[in-house]
Design a protein around this nucleic acid. Structure first.
Lengths: 190, 190
DNA sequence: GCGTCGCTATCTACCGATAGACAGGAAACA
DNA sequence: TGTTTCCTGTCTATCGGTAGATAGCGACGC
């Protein structure tokens, strides 16, 4: 089967996402990426004229796919605790996959070096997650005041990203698991 | 006043720490660093032969100074809630200082690109913080079983690092403050 | 006088980006 | 239908810039 234009574009985006999740945006290289995909770096520039275009496309796609998966979760499950089980499992999967991180989490660490178009996508990812978490919390704690749930959603997102970061840094996924367990124990996570 | 050898070394380490906290280890450049300090890049190589040496020295110093400050805290204060107030304030200060991050937190995100000698220092920083947090928790919750406190210490450290990461990514220190407030509300942080 | 220490100058390797050639297929026209 | 034209997508080759690292020189202090 011949490679179509879309095939290569998709291959670039997949390889790019994996590379960023493992090494960050700064370490993303057109040459390396091209080698992975099996083309020349100039061809990558054809599909993504600048590195900023590529980074923004990666982050946008990451957010879109994440958002779709989260909405699917909310649509098919009703127990908040079970929903949150799945949520924390998503972030755990990145770690389990070769000690990778959330794409937008790792990009947050590199914020000062990101082109503006990438930065806005990182912000969007956080916004999508916070809004979704708040929806779950409304189900879990219908009587709680709304502002408190907003804070809690923020705290949950930050806590999970942090658990992923520290677990990655220590190369010990057990740190992630123990942190999540403690979050649940205190009721931070339903 | 003339610059002694130690002056230059210290200036390099200070500028280096600030640069890493703002841009990460990968973005740390001998040329930029030399320009900041007012010497040539070859001179920086004289004090720190390789980039790995410099990174490891920065992380080691960061851990040592942090450890000393934390021990001082424990020695002069007795109320766990007040002690934790000071602890979260330390991490907040980095954010307030030009949206910087914990040096070892940002290095954790770059883990795959770190030389081994830097990696071990990052691990040490986490270990020092976890051990210290556990000591504070033992004071705050003397009746709790030890393993639970270990988990809680891990969770607190991860949560604070995460709050810092997300707040930095969104360039909104309010995210840090709201997260910490929620952590306290649930009792995760005493 | 012999180390110490910062300098100049240079090396190799890699970066993102661009120019220009070329193959192949679709589209337009006879 | 046969021919010409245009566009798409990839290639080779190269640019200017920066990275970390090194060799060797000269100034200065013990």
């Amino acid at each position: 089967m011949a490679k179509t234009k879309t095939d290569i574009r998709e291959a670039i985006m997949t390889a790019g996402r994996l590379a960023v999740q493992a090494h960050g945006y700064n370490a993303l290289s057109f040459r390396e990426l091209a080698k992975d995909v099996g083309v020349k770096s100039a061809s990558v520039h054809y599909h993504f004229p600048t590195k900023g275009d590529l980074g923004a496309a990666l982050a946008r796609r990451y957010t879109e796919e994440g958002s779709a998966a989260l909405n699917e979760l909310l649509a098919t499950m009703s127990n908040p605790a079970q929903i949150m089980d799945r949520y924390v499992a998503i972030f755990r999967a990145a770690l389990a996959n070769d000690n990778r991180m959330c794409l937008c989490g790792i990009m947050s660490a590199e914020l000062d070096d990101l082109p503006e178009e990438v930065r806005v996508e990182v912000d969007k990812f956080a916004a999508v997650n916070l809004a979704w978490l708040e929806r779950v919390l409304v189900i879990a704690q219908p009587k709680a005041p709304k502002p408190a749930l907003t804070d809690q959603a923020t705290a949950i997102f930050a806590a999970i990203e942090g658990a992923q970061l520290v677990a990655r840094g220590c190369q010990d996924i057990g740190i992630y698991d123990r942190s999540i367990r403690a979050y649940r124990g205190t009721g931070l996570i339903p």
